[in-house]
Amino acid sequence: MKRVIASVLGAVVIGLGAQGAAAAEGGPELPEYTWSFDGVFGQFDLPAAQRGLQVYREVCAGCHSLRFVAFRDLAALGYNEDQIKAFAAEATVVDGPDDEGEMFERDGRPADRFPSPFPNEKAAAAANNGSAPPDLSLMAKARPHGPNYLRALLTGYADPPEDVEVMEGQSYNPYFPGMRIAMAPPLFEEGVEYQDGTEATVDQMAADVTQFLMWAAEPKLQERKQMGLKVILFLLVLTGILYAVKRKVWADLH
């Protein structure tokens, strides 16, 4: 029995290991950052996520869409209704057709999703040297070790080593698959002015926007973990009782 369990665990470890290896292939190992949302009791760091939203809005949103996130969702980051309305109203949304059959632009409302910077993927590609900036709604889940990858990527820009040739319009980034990335370094020291006075270093902004993007990708994370603790506690008690019942029933066979 023990042997079997050991084999199964071995298989799982091998399986996970294989994924890890594939993630880091060709580049340096991803750093292991500590995140507030890690672990069984993990929660989002709301001030950090709010700063991350600011970074997204001021830096990323020019090129990257966030099409699965609605303004109303921001309530989960601790914003009140008026703040959400204000965020939404700053956006311009295409709506319609109106009574004349024309599409028209209007201010955003809380029910709207974040509008995309480009009308479609081809337009996005055309405006960006042929490679469309990907949507960021799910990015923190769409890459192996997503949060670590995002933060490492955002802080990982460097001068290329001599044996790596970087073409015009590309930047060297060892954490990007292939090490050459079409996105120019997006973050600079003091690139945003944080409303809460936090010093906007590149790593701070990278960590904050990653926190925000993790929330965007997995908005139900807190709910999930809190429910999980209750469910498992319940199941442990129930299973314990079932075991006692089983012992009682089988005791007859003595």
Partner: peptide
């Protein structure tokens, strides 16, 4: 009852 107990363990 043994299957029910097993199901409890599985569900955990």
């Amino acid at each position: 009852v043994k299957d029910l107990y097993g199901m409890g363990v599985f569900l955990i």
